[in-house]
Simulated assay, not measured.
Amino acid sequence: MYLSRVVAGPCAALSALIEAVGVVEAARAVRECALPQALRGPTRARREIDCAERDLTAMERMGGRVVTPDDPEWPAWRMLGLSRLDSGRDQDGGVPLVLWVRGPRSLLEASERALAVVGARCSTPYGDQVTADIVSDLAAQGWTIVSGAAYGIDAMAHRAALAARTPTIAVLACGVDRPYPAEHERLLAEIADIGLVVSEYAPGVTARKHQFLARNRLIAGLADGVLVVEAGLRSGARNTVKWARRLGRPALAVPGSVNSAASIGCHRMIRDGEALLVTRSEEVIEETGPLSLPGTTTDPQDGLTGDDATVYAALPKSEPRQPAELSTHTGLPLPAVRASLVSLELAELVANSENGWHRTPSKRFASSRREPGHARRI
């Protein structure tokens, strides 16, 4: 919590220091300014400010909590993609040090099957209707909706999920105690009642422009894919799509009228191969949902037992994994992991590439899918 206040956002250099020496030693080094040159600038202004106890009290008062990488509800597999981004290329791409959370749900469980829905702040009735239709269909099938609580499409996505009494996650670019925009105070309170309000920024932190761009990586990272419904030419939704592509998540866009300024951004992303065109919930699920094999159950894990089931469950949809990583995550011996991977490969449920082992796509969809200009990693 102290370090979160000091850097106020993603800081790849600090994350690397924590990885190398541990969080307690990293905090000591920051307090004493015993730091590499790369960290002295980012920590200089706030290293003497320690509000951890006050922040924790504030969170408890509002019924919230702080979630760290050591906590059971930390979405470790979701965050893993952020840890692998190139800090030189993506300066705002680091893993959050902590997540400040309001709401009754487990962040890990709520994000297991989730779709990010973003779009124009000045949405049209068409965009609102499409958003409501798709979100309602997904909510009925148990999907969590992730968005940024902004005006327009974001708000409509949250409201449609709330109407279906299904969890929705609002990711803020400010403290979770500061509703932004202010007009959405009631909406955010409703989200916190049955879903989650999440931020990497400590209580009391106000929203600033650069924080929205950093926040977008968490919206993309907490979901299985990003859906854009309406976006102007300079829409911030395109930034969220950029993060989705960096993380290997599918990026999807809904087309609109060729005469609609509110859909120019969607059309440009589709034309440039940045996003795949979708028009209804079935197409969204086809691209982002659980994999299935024709002629069998809808879930490939059905029928798997023992080590095979454990290893398959540990393989995420969006990132390849090495056997050693799977061994660490599952607690299985490395030889057992390797044996299970071979067994799963023979069953055509996984495959190996130069980046590691990954789940294979459903054969039912393989011939009909058109990749949107970039390799989608399963």
Rank of each mutant, 00 (worst) to 15 (best):
V6G: 09
G9H: 03
E19F: 01
V21A: 02
V21Y: 00
V24W: 00
E25T: 09
C33H: 06
C33L: 12
L35A: 06
A38M: 06
T43E: 01
R44W: 06
I49G: 00
C51F: 03
D55N: 07
T57K: 02
A58D: 08
M62C: 13
G63L: 11
D71T: 06
D71H: 10
L82W: 08
L82K: 10
L85D: 10
S87P: 15
V98Q: 13
W100L: 05
R102V: 06
R102I: 08
P104W: 05
R105Q: 08
S106T: 14
E109V: 15
S111G: 00
E112A: 15
L115G: 11
A120W: 03
C122Q: 11
G127R: 03
Q129I: 01
T131H: 02
I134P: 11
D137L: 00
I145A: 09
S147W: 00
R159M: 04
A160I: 11
A164D: 14
R165I: 01
I169M: 02
I169K: 02
A170M: 12
A170V: 04
L172V: 00
C174D: 10
V176R: 12
V176E: 04
H184K: 14
R186N: 13
A189I: 05
I194L: 05
V198N: 15
V205N: 14
H210R: 07
Q211I: 11
A214K: 05
N216G: 14
A220Q: 13
G221I: 03
D224Q: 05
G225F: 12
V229Q: 08
V241D: 00
R246Q: 08
R249A: 10
L252A: 08
S263T: 07
C266A: 08
H267E: 05
R268F: 01
M269W: 04
E274P: 04
E274N: 10
V278I: 13
S292A: 13
G295Y: 00
T296N: 06
T297I: 02
G303E: 10
G306D: 14
Y312V: 09
A313N: 09
K317P: 12
R321A: 12
L332S: 07
L332T: 02
P335I: 00
L341N: 12
L341W: 08
V342Q: 07
L344M: 11
A347S: 07
V350A: 06
G356H: 10
F365Q: 04
H374C: 00
